[in-house]
Simulated scan of single mutants.
Amino acid sequence: MVIIDVSAARDGRQLHAALSQALGFPAFYGMNWDAFWDAITGLVVMPDHVRFLGWDGLAEHLPREAEALRASLDRYQHQYRAQFVAEYR
């Protein structure tokens, strides 16, 4: 399991930096949702389980970013790995 603390993210760039670091994205990661999709579907090996800490704060401060992240991971689970688990705490 990979634990990602998103509680300090106050803009999209900070969120993408936290995701990139925790999931081991390459240095050329584009810091946007298209690049996130490319990274999780072809550039890195995703863990079986990801737990997000500070989710409520993220959803409050960056609702569009939180929704985009959840939608991307739901799509990843549906299209690529049904056993993938994402927890939002």
Rank of each mutant, 00 (worst) to 15 (best):
G24Q: 05
H78C: 13
F52K: 00
A22I: 02
E67N: 06
A39E: 09
A22N: 14
F84E: 02
L62T: 07
R89Y: 12
H78V: 04
H49I: 03
R64D: 09
R51E: 13
R64L: 05
A9N: 11
L53I: 04
Y29S: 00
W33I: 04
R75G: 06
D11K: 07
L43G: 02
L15S: 04
G30Q: 12
A35P: 09
H61M: 13
D56L: 11
R89E: 14
G57D: 13
Q83F: 10
S72A: 14
P26A: 02
P63H: 05
D74M: 04
Q21N: 14
P47W: 13
D34S: 14
E65I: 06
A59D: 15
R70A: 12
L69S: 08
A18P: 09
A71K: 07
L23F: 10
Q83R: 07
G42R: 05
A66S: 13
Y80Q: 06
L73C: 14
D11T: 04
G30Y: 12
Q83L: 11
L73E: 01
D74Q: 09
H16L: 00
L62C: 04
G30F: 05
D11M: 08
Q79F: 14
N32C: 06
R89C: 09
A27S: 08
R89F: 11
A18E: 03
Y29F: 15
Q14Y: 07
A86Q: 07
D56P: 03
V44W: 08
E65T: 05
I3E: 15
H61T: 13
D5L: 03
M46D: 01
G30D: 10
I3Y: 10
P26N: 03
M46Y: 07
Q77V: 12
S7W: 04
G57M: 09
P63E: 05
A27R: 08
M46L: 15
N32V: 07
V44R: 01
L58I: 11
A18H: 05
L58A: 04
R89H: 14
Q79K: 14
A68E: 15
H16G: 01
F84R: 00
H16E: 02
A86T: 05
E87T: 10
H16C: 02
I40G: 00
P47E: 05
G57Q: 14
F36G: 00
A59R: 15
H61G: 15
H16M: 10
P63K: 11
L69D: 11
L58V: 03
A27K: 02
M1A: 12
E60W: 04
P47V: 08
E87W: 13
A22C: 06
Y76C: 03
V50E: 00
W33P: 13
A66E: 00
A71T: 05
W33M: 01
P26H: 03
M1D: 08
F36Y: 14
L62W: 09
G24K: 03
L69P: 14
M1G: 12
Q79Y: 12
S20L: 00
R13M: 07
Q79A: 12
W37V: 07
A18G: 03
Y88F: 10
H61N: 10
W55S: 01
